[in-house]
Computed example of a mutant assay.
Amino acid sequence: MTARQVPRCKVPCPRCPWRKDVEPGEFPASRYEELRVTSEQRAGAEPGFGAPLFACHKTKEGREWACAGWLAAVGHRHLGVRLAIAQGPYRWQVEVTIHGPLAEIARRLPRTAVTLTAQPVGVRMQARVERLDGMAHLLASLEWPFTIHRPDELRPALKHLADQLTTAAERTPGELPR
């Protein structure tokens, strides 16, 4: 998720538990304990990559937005927030399973451009890209089969590349490209 894609409230709501001018007690202590994973304060105990964002109490479950008060107060400690900001606003989020060995796939792909995770059926590759034609070229350069999870728009980009390669393979010497 990129900074542009983090659903978030723009300003803290009037009863935001992160506001200093709001009296404590509106929310039970048990709720704060459940949400601790999103905003641990101790050095070295920051929320990990998989930790959820602290959601605004006014958003609906399953369609949560990050709380503006939380983002302003401690959101910078959350690795997911920092990663989203660092990665910037890319147009496409790509998820593909590559059916091959993790070590070999890792040697073939640029570490700064993709995240690789071992899965039972291969390696999950996640990337953020501005253009899908470049991702199509990258995937076509691999020697392993792969399965696209998202975006669906990557499929026509791969088909277009396949058509270009087929045309080039069928072109005879002296024949001009169309």
Rank of each mutant, 00 (worst) to 15 (best):
E175D: 14
E153I: 05
A118M: 02
I148L: 05
G50P: 04
A51H: 04
L109G: 05
R63M: 11
G44C: 05
G80L: 14
L109Y: 01
T38A: 02
L176T: 06
E34N: 01
K58D: 10
A169T: 08
T115S: 06
E130G: 08
P24Y: 13
K58H: 14
R31M: 10
G88R: 02
C16D: 15
R128L: 15
R178P: 08
G44L: 00
P145A: 07
T2L: 03
L158D: 01
P101L: 12
P14F: 06
A106M: 03
E61Q: 08
E95Y: 03
F49R: 03
M1A: 15
A106H: 00
P7I: 10
I105F: 11
R19V: 09
G100S: 04
G48N: 00
R19E: 09
L138D: 03
S141E: 03
R111M: 12
E46A: 12
L154N: 03
R131T: 13
A86T: 10
P47S: 06
Q119C: 14
L161Y: 06
H57E: 12
D163N: 13
R124F: 08
T166V: 13
L158I: 13
H160C: 07
G174T: 01
L158A: 01
R107L: 14
R128C: 08
G69L: 09
H160F: 12
R63Y: 11
R150V: 09
E143W: 11
T117M: 13
Q41L: 15
L132D: 01
C67V: 02
C16F: 08
A43K: 03
V37A: 10
K10Y: 02
I148F: 04
E175S: 13
V123A: 02
A66E: 01
E26I: 04
T38S: 05
T166Q: 12
P12Q: 07
M135K: 07
E26H: 10
E34A: 04
K60V: 08
H160N: 14
R155F: 11
V121T: 15
R108D: 11
K159G: 05
D133V: 06
H99V: 14
H99A: 10
D152I: 05
T2K: 01
R4F: 12
V114T: 11
G75W: 00
R42Q: 07
S30K: 08
P156Y: 01
E170G: 08
P173S: 03
V37Q: 10
L109C: 06
V121K: 11
P156V: 00
L109V: 05
Q87H: 12
L132N: 00
E153S: 12
P177I: 13
R150W: 06
K10S: 11
M1S: 15
P173E: 05
R128V: 09
L161T: 05
G50V: 07
H149C: 06
A55H: 09
T97F: 05
D133H: 05
M1G: 15
P47I: 02
P101Y: 09
T166L: 15
Y90H: 15
Q87D: 11
G100T: 03
